[in-house]
Design a protein around this nucleic acid. Structure first.
Lengths: 154, 154
DNA sequence: AAGGTATCGTCAGTGCACAAACAAATGTGA
DNA sequence: TCACATTTGTTTGTGCACTGACGATACCTT
């Protein structure tokens, strides 16, 4: 019996964490708008007029996925999509009035949900929680593009 | 501008963490066998003869999803599926010889991948990382079934 | 101006994930 | 024994997520 203890596998924990989040989101925030959809709305509220690729970069979705999410938000008329007259490849995106309303409503609910979600941790632990996850995620992300020389020390 | 900082949203961080994991898994472990599939193999190596529902419970997959995962593992002939003669509703599952081989091979690679994945954290931080995520996930999970009296103190 | 290259978005294919509805087998109670 | 309820697994529908291939547009070099 060479089986492994999955509770020490970060991938397994990450999946379980997301499932737990999905559960709470569905019951406390919305059954219609998903968490990635909210993230997109949020990015477009912060920076109206972004194109799809950049929105994807902001919220961490690849081109294919962002296209689907945008299409659903467009179907619900929460987001507008206009060809960029300066660059015919791009679509310029912005939230509609409905989209802004939904974003405001969900912002409140999301804050409440996050409190419940993080309730098992003390405030200090919550800060550590964010920090550790962010460092692990950033670390793995960094392995994708080997050494971008962003004004690096030379 | 009423936009929110997503880096303090656990759901968003959970999603990014899983994406990061997916990336590393794909490059360091396997492009064929996914992490959930490995989890199922692992559960069946530990406890041969489980039925689908119980496997799902062990690895955290619902009935629909476990059915799909099992079907893929069956198609690759890594898992065997036999009707339970005692209970005609169930299938008894066990890994094939191929399945056991794949499990052994991926166990080694997974351990290596986990090291790389967690490299940004010190060993002490890794322990905290596991603990915090587990507590948050368990907490949300607990909200689903209100108070199971599992030999609770009374 | 023309050819090659890069970028943006789409599409097809695969896989995870959940909810709801359903069928078959089993279990329970009158 | 018979009706009702529960449990296991399947199916359908929706949505996220990635890869790889593709067309259109833009850029860049000659």
């Amino acid at each position: 019996m060479a089986a492994v203890d999955l509770t020490t596998h970060p991938g397994h924990l990450a999946r379980r964490l997301q499932q737990a989040h999905h559960l709470l989101w569905n019951t406390m925030v919305s059954e219609e708008i998903t968490s990635p959809q909210f993230a997109v709305l949020n990015a477009l509220v912060a920076e109206p007029g972004l194109d799809q690729r950049t929105v994807g970069e902001r919220v961490g979705l690849d081109r294919s996925t962002i296209a689907e999410v945008i299409s659903r938000l467009g179907r619900r008329e929460l987001v507008d999509k206009v060809r960029d007259p300066q660059d015919g490849r791009r679509f310029l995106l912005r939230v509609t009035d409905d989209g802004a309303r939904v974003h405001r409503k969900l912002t409140v609910r999301t804050a409440r949900m996050n409190q419940v979600f993080l309730a098992p941790l003390t405030p200090a632990e919550q800060a550590v929680f964010f920090d550790l996850i962010r460092r692990v995620a950033d670390g793995a992300e960094g392995l994708r593009n080997p050494a971008e020389p962003t004004a690096a020390q030379g």
